[in-house]
Amino acid sequence: MCARASEPARTKTTARGIQAASRRFVAPAGRARREPSGLAPATARARTGARFSVRQAFGVGRVVLAVAGVVALLGYFDYVLGFATFAVYNYFSYFTVLSGMGAVVAFVAGAVVAFRRAVDPPWLDWFRLLITTYIIVSGIVFLTIVIQSSSRDYTIEVPWSSQLLHFWIPGIALLDWLTDAGKARLPWKTTAWVMLVPGLWGAFTLARGALVGWYPYFFLDPAQVSGPLETLLYSLVAVALFTGIAAGLTATSRLSPRPWRRIPAAVAAATAE
């Protein structure tokens, strides 16, 4: 009877043991499923930290570009001071100088944001797109003028400051734009603003040139072109350059989702679990 009386006890113990064992077998599987979620925040933070270090590198690069822009503007001012016909107020009539000054502001703003945020705000990249377009067009136009100078019986010197303003800074700014994964996804309507500044500058330059008899570029000077049609032709080419380059830069901002934008969502999902 003792043996029979103890059998139910052993049965209950065995049942409890089986249940406990089943829990032990189920628990590791559950933990295995939860482990990626538990490790995701740490992994995401590590990856985010790595990407932030890249952003900081972009910030340092933009600071260097801003300094290079200031040095180039000062160097170019010192260079043109050597011309007997140079007037200080004419210096600020060059589109290259104005766009170079705007580029310095854009580089500084871009550096500050890169040090503090993983993703650029749309207003900054809208401004960067316009400035990058302007300095690239300035470089293309200046290169065209240098090439055409040989057919017009005069030579244009290209000092180091002019090389920085027209070639090196625009080229590096373009590289910065193309490789920056933290820039905003800009709408196509952004390109509609690209002609605002050149249009205002062109109207002011033509009106001022008629009063003072000086133009910053030969194709705007009636005395150096065959007539208004040639000036109009050059202007249309400039419009095509501005809009085409702005459209290309806008397209590159829309190519793919930015990886830094996916990180916060992944961290939030992992934390929620």
Rank of each mutant, 00 (worst) to 15 (best):
M1D: 13
A5W: 02
P8K: 12
T14H: 12
A15C: 11
G17E: 14
A20L: 10
R23M: 08
R23I: 12
F25D: 11
P28F: 00
P28H: 01
G30F: 05
R34V: 11
G38N: 15
A46H: 00
R47E: 11
R51Q: 08
R51D: 03
V54P: 00
R55S: 09
V64Y: 12
L65F: 10
A66I: 00
A66C: 11
A68C: 13
L73R: 03
F77T: 11
G82I: 04
A84Q: 11
N90P: 03
Y91A: 08
Y94A: 04
F95Y: 04
V97Y: 00
S99R: 02
S99L: 02
G100D: 06
G100T: 02
A103H: 04
A103W: 04
A106F: 01
F107T: 00
F107A: 10
V108K: 04
R116N: 14
F127P: 02
L129P: 07
T132L: 00
T133M: 09
S138V: 07
S151I: 09
E157L: 14
V158L: 15
P159N: 02
S161Q: 08
P170C: 03
G171D: 02
T179D: 12
G182H: 03
G182K: 04
R185I: 10
R185P: 07
R185M: 13
P187F: 04
T190L: 10
T191K: 04
A192G: 02
W193D: 07
W193Q: 11
L196K: 05
P198S: 10
F204Q: 15
Y215E: 03
F218A: 12
A223G: 02
E230T: 06
Y234G: 01
Y234L: 03
L236D: 09
A238W: 06
V239M: 15
A240R: 13
I245N: 05
T250A: 08
T250D: 07
P257R: 06
W260Y: 03
I263T: 11
P264H: 01
A272C: 14
A272G: 12
